[in-house]
Amino acid sequence: MGISFWQILIIAVIVILLFGRGKISDLMGDVAKGIKSFKKGMAEDDTADASQSQSPKTIDHKPADTVSAQKTEDQSKAS
């Protein structure tokens, strides 16, 4: 047993009579504003996270002289 079209129609008419068309449209407008506010807040959080993750990273490189000196030492030890 499911809900028929007529039962849904009767419930819709009762809801409209109780709340009126103006209150329902105001309620739907408030819901839409809430969704927009939520999306805006999520977008601001994403941009804040992205700016924090793009902080400069330091890489410790050895100078070229040190690398070549180590290769020379390694080659002399291998001989």
Rank of each mutant, 00 (worst) to 15 (best):
M1K: 14
M1S: 14
I3H: 13
F5W: 12
I8S: 10
L9T: 11
L9I: 06
L9Y: 08
I10P: 00
I10G: 08
I11M: 12
V13Q: 07
V13K: 10
I14M: 14
I16T: 10
L17C: 12
L18M: 10
L18I: 14
L18F: 06
F19E: 06
G20W: 05
R21K: 04
G22P: 00
I24S: 01
I24C: 04
I24L: 15
L27A: 11
V31T: 04
K33S: 05
K33A: 11
G34E: 00
K36W: 10
K36C: 00
S37T: 14
S37P: 09
S37W: 12
F38I: 00
F38M: 03
K39W: 01
K40F: 02
G41W: 00
G41F: 03
M42K: 15
M42W: 11
M42N: 10
E44Q: 03
D45F: 01
A48C: 13
A50Y: 00
S51F: 07
S53N: 15
Q54C: 07
P56V: 05
K57W: 02
T58L: 15
K62P: 02
K62L: 13
K62A: 04
A64Q: 08
A64W: 03
T66I: 01
T66D: 03
V67N: 02
A69L: 03
A69Q: 12
Q70K: 14
T72G: 07
T72V: 10
E73G: 02
D74L: 09
S76E: 11
S76P: 00
S76F: 01
K77G: 00
K77T: 09
K77P: 02
A78Y: 13
A78C: 11
A78L: 15
S79A: 12
S79G: 07
S79N: 10
